[in-house]
């Protein structure tokens, strides 16, 4: 699971959960994977991203790599910054671990990089 996916993912499909965001990550295996850098895509995604959540998630995995905690207003021209964001969003992958719902503490296991979001009968 990439941090871009984590930034968008919620657990509000569980019955009774209002926000379900952000999900906590407890990772036991994190890998770095090379992905082609596409500055246009990153620039377009930044307004959609919850920066605080991204920064915290990257820090908890130990891959923040001096990513600024606050979003700079003029990020579009800053290639260095876009590259860093690209790295954190798309190249850091959680292979094994759990996603934890902030409201119910329900765990969604991640195995081989794929989070399992299937719910049980009583959770629908």
């Amino acid at each position: 699971m990439k941090l871009l996916t984590h930034n968008m993912l919620t657990s509000n499909i569980i019955k009774g959960v209002k926000n379900g965001y952000p999900l906590k990550i407890s990772a036991s295996d994190v890998q770095l994977i090379d992905v082609d850098f596409n500055p246009e895509f990153i620039t377009r995604m930044i307004p959609k991203i919850n920066w605080k959540v991204l920064h915290e998630a990257a820090q908890s995995l130990g891959h923040a790599n001096d990513l600024p905690a606050e979003l700079n207003a003029e990020y579009e021209a800053d290639q260095e910054f876009l590259k860093k964001t690209h790295h954190v969003l798309l190249e850091v992958e959680v292979q094994e671990g759990d996603l934890i719902c902030p409201e119910t503490e329900r765990k969604f296991p991640i195995s081989h990089g794929i989070p399992n979001m299937l719910l049980k009968e009583e959770e629908i």
């Binding site: 699971m1 996916t5 993912l9 499909i13 794929i114 979001m117």
Partner: peptide, 27 residues
């Protein structure tokens, strides 16, 4: 599993569409 073996570029998620799409609004 086949998708991971084929090394697709996209991120994958195991989920049942009938239980809802678990993403933030406007994603």
């Amino acid at each position: 599993e086949v998708a991971t073996e084929r090394e697709v570029e996209g991120d994958l998620l195991q989920s049942d569409m009938g239980q809802g799409i678990p993403f933030r609004p406007g994603t």
